[in-house]
Amino acid sequence: MSGEEFVPLSLTPLLIGTFAAIACALPGNFLVLRKQALIGDAISHVVLPGIVVAFLVTGAISTWPMMLGAAGAAIVAVVLIEAIRRLGQIEPGAAMGVVFTTMFAAGVLLLEQTDTSTVHLDVEHALYGNLESLIWLDATGWGSLLDVEALAGLPPELPRIALTLVGVSVFTWLFWRPLKISTFDEGFARTIGIRTGALGMALVITAAIAAVAAFDAVGSIIVIAMFICPPAAARMLTNRLEAQIAWSIVFATASAVSGYVLAGYGPLWLGGSDAVSAAGMIATMSGLILAAAAMFGPCRAHIGAHTST
């Protein structure tokens, strides 16, 4: 494919999909090890009331208020989950389940009470995103990457998810050591002065922000898949957290790129005529990678095989 076709039509969706996948996979590594991976699922549900409230307040469909509403709802949810878990001495899975169903239900009720005929808040759009539509029409070829005028026409999702990825990466790099220690041994972490409660909260809030930014760009199905599949597959390839994180980035990228390409061209290769959903294909690819790792990964035998008695 020539640059004239590739740059305007495929480069931005590929980059957005890849950045979103990595931004979710990075905190996903810690969430999976902390058995909190379903928080991605929870966040994708709780953003609904946030978006509806943002719409009610501003009365318009504009991106920033909606994203702020979604992020606000996500943060309220993770704080509620932590509070229920700690005060009620309830296991994290149950606390998540209670909070996200309640908040999602409240979102549905709110939506029902508002005039939705003028509002484009349909479920399909939210679930699968609209990756294919994030094209860069101002580009004419690779040279456009240096053209200021053309760059101004980039889909706004791209700088947004890029910035989110930078934020998530900096958080992971900066707090690498305390995150690792407190994920492995929370009691010990507290005795050396790590504020494990605040750090755990910062981790889920980082995950929530990554989820909301990715949700806006690529839909919730990728978010849920990327929190779990690349880190879980990476765990089966290595026994070192550092290597696990590197592999999870490789798998997130591979899922995004292969999923996007297969969704666009796979059906044509098979003799069909229509492309399929890129988001759906990316999530499917991440699942296939996980399945392959589960069958052939060199370190899969240790997980859960050794009980600590």
Partner: peptide, 8 residues
């Protein structure tokens, strides 16, 4: 009190 399957 810790998960010995932790990758380390």
């Amino acid at each position: 009190s810790v998960d010995w399957d932790f990758p380390t």
